[in-house]
Amino acid sequence: MFKKKIKDPRPTIRLKDDLVSYGMMSPFLLMYLLMVIAPIATAILFSFTSYDMFSPPEFVGLSNFVYLFVSDSVFIKSLANTLQFAVVTGPLSFILCFLLAWIINDLPPKLRAVITLVFYAPSISANAYVVWQYIFSPDSYGFANSWLMSLGILDEPCLWFQDPTISLFLLMAVQLWLSLGVGFLSFIAGLQNVDRQLYEAAAIDGIHNRWEELWYVTLPSMKPMLIFGGLNQIVTAFTVGDISMTLCGFPSVQYAAHTVSLHAYDYGILRYEIGYSAAISLVLFIIVLFTYKLFAFAVSRIGR
């Protein structure tokens, strides 16, 4: 569909449009500026300062950022972990979300509601992932250990989340298990909103199999939801922290499950080094921004 660009020469009409538009957006814009933009702007300013919340912030230029990359080996470790984590879980969970929504979409309505609930289950209670703590608890009381030991596969209890060689991989598995969240629901809603007539037209135009239908009809109609779901998955994948803190402890053994978000939390909340913490978050933001731009570009190529 091409966009009609009507340049209205009458300035009063433009003015009226502006007034109506900003009027309708005003409750959101006001609170958005206060609750989102002001905090972000503050954080960006703080990232160039040394600030402990008690004495006034002191401008230090780029030294926070220099220190991060030159002297903070724990940060480098957390960055490596986060990148590894995001590269694996981001694309996988995005594809998983879409494929499942696509498969579920073909089911009879009642069955679909039930199955959607089942797949969404891990996201419905805020910290359902605690269940993995019981299953993989490091003593012989844990489900996994007691089963594996009674089967003779393990001789002594595995430390699971406490074992630095495997903890990051276990976290990735938990993240994938958690990934059918907001994006998944938006895909399901999006698939319902695809115009049925497009499918009929495509069938007449000679689309032969489901994969062609997916690529030429479904995916192009789903672009806006793919962008929404992808943005959510990217942010979730890069800002991982809570599940690591709950399951692997804080700090994790040998920082094996330490992430950039946790590093920011460590300095911001625990050590009151607000400036340094803000710098960490800003570095993370730049990585997320870059990834998102790349993703948005990839989505724009769909169906070509």
Partner: peptide
């Protein structure tokens, strides 16, 4: 769109 890419934890204190 850009503000959605910030971690929500950054908003907390401010």
């Amino acid at each position: 769109t850009t503000s959605m890419l910030f971690t929500s934890s950054i908003l907390g204190i401010p």
